[in-house]
Amino acid sequence: MTMRKLRAVWIRLLGMIGAQRDDEEFAAELASHVAMDTDDGVRAGLSPAEARRQALIHLGGAEQTQQAHRERRGLPWLETLVRDFTYGLRTLGRHLGVTAIAILSIGLGIGANATIFSMVSRFVLRPAPMGDPTTLLGLHTTHGSDPCCNNFSFPAYTDLRDQAKSFSGVAAYYELIPASIGGGGQPERVWGQGVTSNFFDVTELPMVVGRGFITGQENAPEVVLGAGLWQRRFNADKAIVGKPVILSGRTFTVVGVVTPAFHSVDQILDTEFWVPLGNTR
């Protein structure tokens, strides 16, 4: 039954489109109805004029019937809405200057705000695409009265990693490593980061293919590629895991490709590969 109702709504929606033709068709149907009623009246002995008058009375008014039929044909509230809209559009079109200025005003105001809010969202609000952003913190060291902040020395990192109990894992990365990459195409210099082997576990970074590094293997000749580099130089090869890549003359085995949204933890540096930190010393 509900299906029947839906079907009726659908036909009524369609009915709004062909309204003109439907009106004409129903007018014809009504005309034939009145004509037949009139015929019967004449047969019963009425004058043709009186018979027709009676027929219209039986019907309850041709115009009213037309209207009732029309209302059943479409969806009245939707028609009102459409009428309001088309009427509104026509009014706005008549005052083209005012309309243009109003739309331009709102548009410029909204455009300016959307642009700056996009920047705020990008640089201040947006969390990095790593695991659960609420449980992932960034640590720096500070010295003396200087309010900001230095990178960790490696011993300071290992001390903290081994002794802090507040964290389920502490990973570190070395900000920037330049490397040359050859193979197919123009030789290129690319930037990457050296990371502790637990980096991908701690950050819970989503991978496009493959995996991160195995915790504890700080010197493994393995590399995780950024999605951009993977697409640019390796044609987004889904079967890249296990293949060798030569960085600055040394051979690394690709173990994974990281999500395209990730470039670096601070979301400013645009780095494209990650190798275990042991390789960089």
Binding site: R4, A8, M36, H58, A68, H69
Partner: peptide, 27 residues
């Protein structure tokens, strides 16, 4: 009131219980 019949017919047709076509009457 004969007029009230037509919306009812239309409703039945929209619900798919009846169908209509043009033809010629006995007269």
């Amino acid at each position: 009131n004969y007029g009230t019949l037509y919306p009812a017919l239309l409703k039945l047709e929209q619900e798919g219980f009846i169908r209509s076509r043009w033809g010629v009457s006995e007269n």
